[in-house]
Amino acid sequence: MEFEFLMKECPLIAILRGITPKETEAVCEVLYNTGIRLLEIPLNSPDALKSIAIAVRGNEGRMLVGAGTVLTIEDACRVYNAGGKFIISPNTDVDVIKETKRLGMISIPGFFTTTEAFTAIKAGADYLKLFPSILGSGYIKDLKAVVKKPIFAVGGVNAENLSEFLDVCVGAGIGSALYKSGKSLADLEGDAKLFCQLVSRIHQ
């Protein structure tokens, strides 16, 4: 399934930092049933590659699974071998971006300055990721005057400010406001429904 197609269904990436292989299947099922279609499993989660493989096997044809906190080309290759379809990094690393594209995956590197943005774009990045909580949506709006790649807001995005960031970004990555280790499936379901309802209202 195409990343862009699933973005149109729901422009949110669920960041499952800290998830374990044992809970992956159940968490994915809850998120799918509430409308989320894109899953990021950060590599600093316990046994992350196993969780990625489990998520991929259980959701083929209905969700896309990728990895976050990808810092090296070796990490990118491991994610590819586990079945991951996109790579998200906290930084702009040209080698990681180029390897991601060589492997046929979607590249979403992190950036903060225009210099980093243009470096990432030149290397082949498909999307860009910005930690917006420090400077807010106004900074992203100003950047878009010159940075033409679509930007994800990731970090500090919650139910209160989601609308603000989706006004200027193509999508958002939702971390602890949606999922955290030890959270019950019922609470996860409630928060996932809330975020998907907010998206529906924003896009009306």
Rank of each mutant, 00 (worst) to 15 (best):
P42A: 01
L43D: 02
L43G: 00
L43R: 00
L49Q: 06
L49A: 08
K50H: 09
S51C: 11
S51Q: 08
I52P: 08
A53F: 03
I54S: 11
V56W: 06
G61A: 08
G61S: 14
R62S: 09
M63S: 05
V65N: 10
V65R: 05
G66A: 10
A67C: 07
G68A: 12
L71C: 14
T72C: 10
I73P: 10
E74G: 10
D75E: 06
A76C: 06
C77Y: 06
V79N: 00
V79Q: 00
N81Q: 15
A82W: 01
G83M: 11
G84A: 14
F86P: 08
F86I: 04
I87F: 10
I88N: 05
S89T: 12
N91Q: 06
D93F: 07
D93E: 15
V94W: 02
V96W: 05
K98N: 00
K98M: 13
E99C: 12
K101I: 13
G104E: 02
M105S: 01
I106G: 00
I106Q: 12
S107E: 08
I108M: 05
P109V: 09
F112S: 06
T115W: 02
A117F: 01
F118S: 05
F118Q: 03
T119W: 00
A120E: 07
A125K: 08
L128V: 10
K129N: 07
L130C: 04
F131Y: 15
P132Y: 01
P132K: 08
P132I: 10
P132R: 01
S133D: 13
I134K: 12
G136D: 01
G138S: 11
G138P: 00
I140T: 05
K141G: 03
K144Q: 09
V146Q: 02
V147T: 06
K148H: 07
K149Y: 12
P150L: 05
I151Q: 01
V154A: 02
G155I: 00
G155Y: 04
G156I: 08
G156N: 12
V157Q: 12
E160S: 11
L162R: 11
S163V: 07
E164A: 09
L166K: 06
D167C: 04
D167L: 05
V168C: 03
V168K: 07
V168N: 01
V168P: 07
G171F: 03
G171M: 13
G171A: 02
G171S: 14
S176F: 05
A177Q: 11
L178Y: 04
Y179T: 01
K180H: 15
K180E: 13
K180N: 13
S181Q: 09
